[in-house]
Structures are given as structure tokens and as C-alpha cells.
Design a protein around this nucleic acid. Structure first.
Lengths: 255, 255
DNA sequence: AGATGACCAAATGAGCGCATTTGGTCATAC
DNA sequence: GTATGACCAAATGCGCTCATTTGGTCATCT
């Protein structure tokens, strides 16, 4: 017997090849959106550049918007993984400071994520212009939530500032460094590494409690930091999965 | 003898009344530009609201653009004077930290100066859109120049960061606090006073050398801080004077 | 002289028609 | 089942017109 439809997995041809194609399409989309911006990047362009027919793209995503959502999400996951990798290789261990530094550095190398964070209409065009709502995504929310509290509980950061105040400082500083960079006069421009270092140091000085931590506490902080990162990463991965799965061409991409 | 034209001052009627009228016009312009934005605020509107004829406005400024330049400059001078006043009344004396705090607070109360600083096209419209050049005005330049060096020389601020790096930190942080504020979710919003305090403290921690200064050094810092402020203020006043003098309807308003 | 507002050239903006493009579908081919 | 591209309704962009508005001037009045 051939047992035609009792397959657990709905048999689809070469799942790997499908995924590869999806990524190829996203690669092309990334290239085009960075060159021409969202508004001027058409599905036809992407299909042609990726060497597939237009219809094929709609076998992967239900709309143009969904494709770009997937693109953004993929980039975000890649960035977070990059951060995670750098963080575990960090000699000092996973300190908040190291987290900020690697996060900043990774962000600078991801123009798409950066554009999304800054709400850059130049690149993201109407994708943003029409919904400037959810920008401050769940990431920062959850950051100002759980992680900050944990750091406070361990007295790794100051307790004389409320979590809301600390979130403001973090947001503002992070944001400021990214907005100001491209518009500094040439003779004031620093390397990405230096900027990331300065940003991390500024936040460190702004928030650090200054007290010397016991090895146990340091360990706990490192664990919490990685846990926070993994949580964020997991969430981002889940979102990405939704954006890539064929079965579920969900219509919700709230960033 | 009536000595008709040997008067030293070219006799013009009631200089005071003229100035008052100029300010009344600027007041109306300020109100209108904040309500409707630069693009939608017409000379006719201003004239009508200020109770003068359109021609009269052109007795004060040679163009619409010149009028708004005067407006910006007047606001900047007022803001700097406000800062100066707050700074000399400061119990701690004129520390850089107090300077930043008062500057931030004053800035928050001056939507026009803030809009100019942030390049807010919503308010300033084409006035900015056409010349996004000179934005980072001479103020910040001279700040990163003379004043920072003085602070370094007195070892009031760290010497392990270059002036350029310090300028980046200051710019980014300042900028970040202002950009992020309006777009924070409601439950994360702080008062202007608290924000200014946080900003000043963040910069203080980021830049301060941490060493205890002798009374003489403190004095020197205070003097330098006030001197810097006065220098900036003097420059701003000079610019404003050019924007208000009838004799010289100069065409240069490079911010 | 100082102030005014009618006046004008230029800019702006709304509306319209038309050609092209674009996102998305689906009958067809493999 | 999978991929394709011809196909279509809708959107976009462009050129144009026409009416209104607007910045700026200047003859006139005070």
C-alpha cells in the first residue's frame, strides 16, 4: 500500500529547497529595498532579480507587506543571534554593558532593523508612514519590564531611579546615538566600534549601581542577561517562523 | 534752525514703538506657526492677526523667510537668557551639569527652538526641508571647541575621551532625550523637570572626571561655564539684532 | 516721513483624463 | 502537487488646466 494521505507531515517537495528559495527571495528583496526604498521596490523587480515568477512569491507570502515583514523579522533574528554569539564569547561575561555594546554594534550593521527602529521613511516608506504605531515594539517593553527589574533586584543597577526612568534613559541614549550618527559633520565621525563602546559606557555610567558584585551575583546577572536575550530571540524567532511558514499565511504582522 | 539732515541718528519716529510692533508681529507669527506650521502660515494671516497691513511687515523684514529667521533667533535668545538667569541663581553654582539641566528644561519650553534643533519638518516645513545643512549650528561647534577643552584642562571632565568623542556623547544624549520624549507611551512619560534632571545626570556621569575639585577649580569652572554661555548668548543676540534692524535687511540668515 | 492695501506675477493646489504600473489571481503547463 | 506568467482591477504617476492663494511691490494717502 502506498498509504497516500496518512503521512504525518503533509508531504511537500523538498522542504529545504523551498526554504532556500524563500531566503533567496528575501535576499533579493533586502538588496532592492536598501537601494530603492520600500515604495519603489516592486514584487516584479524582486521576482525577476530572484529568478522566479511572480506567482511563486505568492506561494510564500500572502501579500507584499507580508514579504517585507518577513524580511524585517529575519534581519532582526539574525541580529539578535549575532548579539548572542558575541555575548557568550565575551571575556567579561554577559554584563548589561556588554549587551548594550554588542546590541549597538550589531544594529549598526543592520540597516533594515535600524530603519525600523528609527522609523526611517526614506527606506521603509509607506510601510511605516501608514502605521507609526507599534514602533516601540515588544522588545523594549519587555526590556523595561522584566529584565530591568531583575537587574534592580540584584542591585546591579541603581535603585534610586524608577524602572520607567531607567527605560527613558536607555531609550533616549540608544536612540540618540543612532539618530545623531549619520548627521554628524565628517570631522566628528567615529567608527561603529567606538560609537558602540561610547554608548555602552554612557549607559553603564548612567545606570550602574557602582557596587562590587560577588561572583555569585555576577553569575546571576550574566544568566539573567542571557535569559533576557534568549527570550527576546525566541519571540523574534517565533514571529519569523510565522512569516515563513506556508501553511499559515497569517495576516497579523504587528512588527 | 531746524538742522534738517545733520542729525547723527537718521530721525525715525519712535524707535520704541517700532520695536514693540516688530515684537507684536513676531508674537503673532509664533502663535500661528505653532498652530498651523510654517508652510500654512501666510504673511496675510500674520498681518491680519497682528493688526497691521501687509506692507508694514515688509518695512521690518525683507522677506517671509527673514521674518521667521528673526522669530527663531528671538526665541533662541530668550531661551539662553532664561538659562543664564537660572544658572546664576543656582545654589550649586554654574556647573556643567546645571548648565545641561537648565538648557534641557528651557529647550522643552521652546517648541520653536526645539523644532529647529530636531529639524522638525512638521512645524518648520520648507524652511528646513530646503536647507537641512547648517542645522548643527555654531553653538554646538563652539561647544565642542573651546568650552570642552577648558573643562578638560581643568580636569573637570574625563581626559580619556577625545573632545570629538565627548561631543558625540553630548549630542547623542541631548538629541535622544528630545526625540524620544514625544513618542514614549503614555505610562512611561515623565515630567519635563524630571527628564531634564535625568539628562543632566546622564551626561554628568558620562563625562565627569569624578575627582574632587578645589574651590578655586570649582570657581574656574563656573566662570568658564558662564563665559561660554555668555559667548553663545552674545552671538545669538548679534544675530537677532541683524534680524531686527531696519537699516540692514541683510540676506544672510544662516540659522 | 510712515503706513496702507490694491495690485501683479508667480506659486500652489485641486481636479481631471489618460497611460502605465502594480499587487494579486488563476487557468494552464509541467 | 508545483511553478508559471498572462491577465485584471485598482493604484499610481504624469501632464495639463484652471481657479485661488501668496509673497512682494508701489502708488497713494496720511
Amino acid at each position: 500500500m502506498t498509504s497516500p494521505e496518512t503521512e504525518a507531515q503533509p508531504r511537500r517537495q523538498d522542504t529545504t529547497a523551498r526554504e532556500e528559495r524563500a531566503h533567496r527571495i528575501l535576499d533579493t528583496a533586502a538588496e532592492l529595498i536598501l537601494r530603492w526604498g520600500y515604495d519603489k521596490t516592486t514584487i516584479d523587480d524582486i521576482a525577476r532579480s530572484a529568478g522566479v515568477a511572480k506567482g511563486t512569491i505568492y506561494l510564500h507570502w500572502k501579500s507584499r507587506e507580508a514579504l517585507f515583514a518577513a524580511l524585517l523579522r529575519r534581519d532582526r533574528v539574525a541580529m539578535l543571534e549575532e548579539v548572542r554569539h558575541a555575548l557568550v564569547s565575551e571575556p567579561d561575561g554577559a554584563t548589561p554593558r556588554a549587551l548594550f555594546r554588542h546590541l549597538a554594534l550589531a544594529l549598526m550593521g543592520r540597516p533594515l532593523v535600524k530603519a525600523a527602529l528609527l522609523g526611517d521613511t526614506e527606506v521603509l516608506g509607506k510601510l511605516i508612514r501608514l502605521k507609526p504605531k507599534v514602533q516601540t515594539s515588544a522588545a523594549l517593553r519587555s526590556l523595561s519590564g522584566g529584565y530591568l527589574r531583575t537587574l534592580r533586584d540584584h542591585e546591579a543597577i541603581r535603585t534610586d531611579l524608577s524602572p520607567v526612568e531607567q527605560a527613558n534613559v536607555i531609550n533616549a541614549t540608544l536612540y540618540g546615538f543612532f539618530v545623531i550618527t549619520p548627521q554628524m559633520p565628517d570631522d566628528h565621525r567615529l567608527t561603529d566600534e567606538r560609537l558602540a563602546e561610547l554608548l555602552a559606557e554612557t549607559l553603564h555610567r548612567a545606570l550602574d549601581s557602582g557596587r562590587t558584585l560577588s561572583p555569585e551575583q555576577t553569575q546571576a546577572i550574566a544568566r539573567a542577561t542571557l535569559a533576557f536575550l534568549d527570550e527576546t530571540l525566541g519571540l523574534a524567532k517565533e514571529r519569523l517562523r510565522l512569516s515563513l511558514s506556508t501553511t499559515d499565511l497569517g495576516k497579523d504582522y504587528a512588527r
